[in-house]
Nucleic acid binder design. Structure first.
Lengths: 203, 203
DNA sequence: GTGCATCGGTGCACGCCGTGCATCAAGTAC
DNA sequence: GTACTTGATGCACGGCGTGCACCGATGCAC
């Protein structure tokens, strides 16, 4: 899910171009604010033609959110890798924490872009769309994990679990607005939310 | 929440202008497909200047989805009107069914726009954004309904309940692709999903 | 009713967006 | 090496979204 198999120079260059544009978009958005970023500026920053930018991303929002999409994909990938003995919610919780707790560049980028989205309402629609796409991927993964689950339950499960994550992450980012985000608090919040879901929502 | 109090000719005319644009947008989208609708065409259809269109809606998508937004607002409004004795999920279920079962023009418009969105992926991002906005309204309504609930629970509840509704409505629209949508099936599906949520999600 | 202040509707201009098309050069297969 | 494939680029064009200035209808005070 990270960078599969770059065989052939062409494929490698395409990957590099895409990565350069994605990183340039994130860098500019963080430095100047999303509203001051244009497709042209992203392309210039990556030293690539404006037309080529649109060969890779259909809008500047998509380019900025590509980093967030990678994060969401990573969560689903980690979910698939969790032991089959774990329940769906437990596996998902651990998957999220694994991704958010990574102390490398990608991990910091994930947090950075999530904070960026909080401050830039214009990114919200597309981000929710990214989430919706990953819901489908998560639903597929849940189907593989369980034995003969009905479609209604799987979709309900994937969607509500992601929705809960959205709330928890939003609250976590809200409180850790500038300080280094305490991962322990995040773990507690996720556990709390998922326990509520598992135990029954209605009061 | 329908049409509050139109006192003053100016206010009435503004309301009329907005409604005319909203209905023109919906009509054109249904007739010609969302991709063939432009702001200019919507404005012409309503016999209003293009510039004025943008005084009311910031994009053609917003104009088309205004009908969907009205539906979501109506659900929250009906939710507030449900007896306080009902649990959150029960009240929300009845609220949704009240809105979807209305046999007037507005009711048919709500269903029509939901079906339109299913076929037009370009509308999805903004629609999810509309939903997110109504999640906040629902959270506020839940806070009023319950006694001293903590913020985390209220947001979790509002978000997951709406997410569940999204899944149920999507499945319902999927199966009733052209036939008159059977409301009884919808009731059963909503009841089923909310029962699962109330009983505990994890298997 | 008259005069004045307010405010919505409109036209204009401008920069950015997203895409079809033709072209060029680098990569690939033989 | 030769010919094919394909990504990068420039160009042009229609649509988008907005600031600005103007005008005429509305609302208000007298």
């Amino acid at each position: 899910m990270t960078t599969a198999a770059p065989d052939g120079r062409r494929e490698r260059k395409k990957l590099a171009t895409r990565a350069a544009l994605r990183q340039a978009a994130l860098r500019l958005a963080l430095r100047d604010g999303v509203e001051n970023v244009t497709a042209e500026r992203i392309a210039d920053e990556a030293d690539i033609a404006r037309r080529t930018f649109f060969n890779y991303f259909s809008s500047k929002e998509e380019a900025v959110l590509a980093t967030a999409a990678l994060g969401a994909e990573a969560v689903v990938a980690r979910f698939r890798a969790r032991p089959a003995a774990e329940s769906v919610l437990t596996a998902l919780r651990e998957a999220v924490l694994e991704v958010m707790d990574r102390d490398d560049v990608a991990g910091h980028e994930h947090v950075a872009v999530l904070r960026l989205i909080r401050r830039a309402p214009s990114l919200l629609p597309q981000q929710l769309s990214v989430l919706a796409a990953q819901e489908r991927a998560l639903a597929a993964a849940i189907t593989e994990r369980l034995d003969g689950p009905d479609d209604a339950y799987v979709r309900l499960c994937a969607t509500t679990a992601f929705a809960a994550l959205r709330v928890v992450l939003d609250r976590w980012l809200e409180r850790a607005d500038d300080a280094a985000p305490p991962i322990d608090v995040l773990r507690a919040e996720v556990t709390d939310a998922f326990t509520t879901l598992a135990g029954g929502l209605d009061r």
